[in-house]
Design a protein around this nucleic acid. Sequence first.
DNA 1: GTTAAACGTGGAATCGATTCCACAACATAG
DNA 2: CTATGTTGTGGAATCGATTCCACGTTTAAC
Lengths: 331, 331
Amino acid sequence: MLTIKEIAEMARVSRSTVSRVLNESGYVSEEARKRVLEVVERTGYVPSQHAQSLRTKKTRVIGVVLPKLGTETAGRVVNGINEILSEQGYQILLTSTNLQAEKEIEYLRLLKSRQVDGIILSATNINDNLLAEIKQLKLPFVAIGQDIPSVSSVTYDDFHAAKAMTELMIKKGRSKIAFIGVDEADQAVGVMRKQGFLQAMKQNGLQVRKEWMVTADFDIPSGSRAMAQILAETTEGNKPDAIFCVTERIAVGAMQTLKETGFKIPAQISITGIGASDISKYVDPALTTMDYENETAGKEAAKMLLAQIEKNILTHKKIVLNGRLIIRNSI
Amino acid sequence: MLTIKEIAEMARVSRSTVSRVLNESGYVSEEARKRVLEVVERTGYVPSQHAQSLRTKKTRVIGVVLPKLGTETAGRVVNGINEILSEQGYQILLTSTNLQAEKEIEYLRLLKSRQVDGIILSATNINDNLLAEIKQLKLPFVAIGQDIPSVSSVTYDDFHAAKAMTELMIKKGRSKIAFIGVDEADQAVGVMRKQGFLQAMKQNGLQVRKEWMVTADFDIPSGSRAMAQILAETTEGNKPDAIFCVTERIAVGAMQTLKETGFKIPAQISITGIGASDISKYVDPALTTMDYENETAGKEAAKMLLAQIEKNILTHKKIVLNGRLIIRNSI
DNA sequence: GTTAAACGTGGAATCGATTCCACAACATAG
DNA sequence: CTATGTTGTGGAATCGATTCCACGTTTAAC
């Protein structure tokens, strides 16, 4: 690996001059500049980022903490982040907790020790330890998906998204609506979407049967199981005529169970979810859902973070994105 | 940000001693060790990775270059890589070219300037410039998906995968088989899979109609268009009775067109692809395909890279993974 | 009771950049 | 012809760690 010292010798100038040329700062004669650039070009020299960072305290690296890689959703978020950051010459240092909550704190510390210029966290569950850790980070920070007190965030209007989906089915004449949610440790998905559903039901004077409100995990098979659980609580004369799932994948799983059990969708039963990756478009019937435009969320988060970094002030700001309703054949 | 110097002062020892405690090297008295650890614990001190890297030439960061983020496949590969690397205390510096070939070289240089300990590249097209760049990197390196001369790689047996899928349809009694491929700039997907298809046809004495061999891009809509193109070349009396698509997403798109046109799958026509993300399981009928187990590929690549880094020898080694056949209802 | 080995510790050099400062050369102003 | 800028350059300090080396102090060996 070449160093600035060697470049300096080859160009017959001092290291200071090489640095000045490369950073376009201070006075450099045309003579010297040309010699330096020629050597740099010829040798393919690239300054050591570590030495630079050590000196300047800027790394041009952003830490990203994800709950899980390997889903289209996560990929899209990262893609959005990457699009904005790479334009500005920033790189992404990626970590994934694989849904282990204790790793979130570990990774935040790790990223700090790598002196990242900022952190974007896509969290699922927020606990007090995590909150405390974030507070004392003293780093530009943006959360995606969950609203965290006194911290910048990009979130979705989960309450109204869920309410709108539920109302849509009610308007289509459905009234016996079942619900598949997730654990309430997840504020956005577990709590807000559930409340949206309940409010829609209440405002329309509809009953909610307790046995028809079950919880699932975030994957497809779990949606299938949850649906089976609801059907087990169902007598022949009193079947649900609609089902609202808090995520797209749960809905896909539920739909699978319904089809296997012989239900006709949407003739006998409607089904909706939230979130729009490719799969919901190509299941049969295509799923009515809410597109959360994850790329946009990633982009907005990245922009907010860059703004914080540049202004060098740790203000906080909240962005709430609205989903885009996609009506397909499942209702 | 705390520095080692401050920790040293607080623990009333020298910086050397602090360093020895943290790295568990050399002699340190129990007395001093305890004092240092106590201070570290209390202050939450974490050493600056940049200073460490500058001194030790090790960063514990691996650069990953992807063609595109935001697909389940890419996510799974990264997930596999991450699983192995994070166990060993390595981080991922992620870059995505978004399918712009010239960016690959740019990113390789960038990663080198960040002194990553190694690079994993998931390439689509390999051109001479890229090859030359890789050669002169002088860094531990592993390619995923494409076989690159004299460089370590984890690839799939694309030829036999395609051949097996084609033979499967032939065994089911199909003979008028159409083919949807991709551009041949992609050696693995464009060339090898095509050859596997052609060989299966040839060995079974089957004709391949030129109008029934078309190319698509890597996305679903493009598969739909390609299928429409084939159907346009088809007279009423001579319709294909099977179609092999080189990717799962192309197959999903093609299936959509077939269903819209009124074909009964698999009664009138069989369809297969390669690659198994969730979508192929939940389309109707479920797609017969080859699971390429991207997580495994990611893991193997990471392991190979770590082996190179530890042995500090730039040997190369090839791993060829076999897909796992998944027979579903589309044939 | 020397002599040698095992412990413990701090000083100082080093990694590869940036940047402040001093100084020289030359031009311009008064 | 002295003062005052403007250019241009290199030296040296600095960022925050690691690590070699020198130098004490114990402990063990014969």
